[in-house]
């Protein structure tokens, strides 16, 4: 469905991605693991077209995406839920959700999207008129995911959804990610919490220094010695 082949990308002179190739199969959950600075977030930014790679191929539904604007990426159903949540702090919860549906023109669809967000995160409904900046970290993460759902994703890119969140909530959020996937939405999950990510994903890539160091079925990777040592704490 979505495929990156041999992507190279630079930040100034820093060679951030050195030939990354990953593939998302329709309806799957794929996790992208690795240490800080391995290139996980950069990979997502390449997919949402915030970064233009120097070299490589990026295909989505059989077409090249390297000339597509970030706005059109959203329109095609690839929604990026960024690291650090980045909700709009001075907008209300409702307005944050509305802005998530910026590319959706149909009012009924927006309404349904709103219902869906509240179905997954009832707490957002309670806090509908509150400014997003006043929410707790966990609630902001829920809002960020809800906001991404408003854009009617076919592919959802989630960047560190468990970062800085209470353990109990982490479990809930991972459950919700699985239910979202059951709706048929393909998910690319970037995580530090490798154990959790491997539990729910079908396939996984491990990035090291901007390269894919390892890849395989998540179940297989869980038993891989190197992954155990480096990412699962022995």
């Amino acid at each position: 469905m979505l495929k990156l082949t041999d992507i190279h990308s630079y930040y100034g002179h820093v060679h951030a991605l050195r030939g990354v190739s990953i593939e998302l199969k329709k309806g799957s959950i794929v996790s992208l693991l690795g240490a800080n600075g391995a290139g996980k977030s950069t990979t997502l930014k390449v997919i949402s077209r915030l970064i233009n790679p120097k070299q490589g191929v990026y295909e989505y539904q059989q077409g090249s995406m390297l000339r597509t604007s970030p706005g059109d990426v959203v329109k095609k159903g690839i929604i990026h839920c960024p690291e650090g949540r980045r909700v709009f702090p001075l907008l209300s919860v409702e307005e944050n959700l509305r802005i998530g549906a910026y590319q959706v023109k149909d009012r009924d669809q927006i309404k349904q999207g709103m219902e869906r967000a509240f179905h997954y995160f009832p707490r957002l409904k309670e806090r509908m008129h509150q400014k997003a900046g006043t929410l707790s970290g966990g609630e902001q993460q829920m809002l960020a995911i809800g906001r991404a759902l408003m854009g009617q994703p076919k592919v959802l890119l989630l960047d560190e959804p468990s970062l800085g969140i209470a353990p109990l909530l982490v479990k809930e959020i991972f459950n919700i990610i699985q239910s979202i996937n059951r709706e048929g939405i393909t998910i690319l999950l970037v995580e530090q919490n490798a154990r959790k990510a491997l539990e729910i994903s079908d396939y996984a890539y491990v990035l090291e220094n901007g390269e894919v160091a390892l890849e395989g079925e998540s179940e297989a990777l869980r038993d891989n010695d190197r992954v155990r040592q480096l990412y699962l704490g022995g």
Binding site: G71, V74, V87, F88, L91
Partner: peptide, 16 residues
């Protein structure tokens, strides 16, 4: 209002 608060996040919402 969204763009003034966070340019990058606004771009990710599909806002030009």
């Amino acid at each position: 209002r969204a763009s003034s608060q966070d340019m990058v996040a606004a771009e990710l919402m599909g806002i030009k």
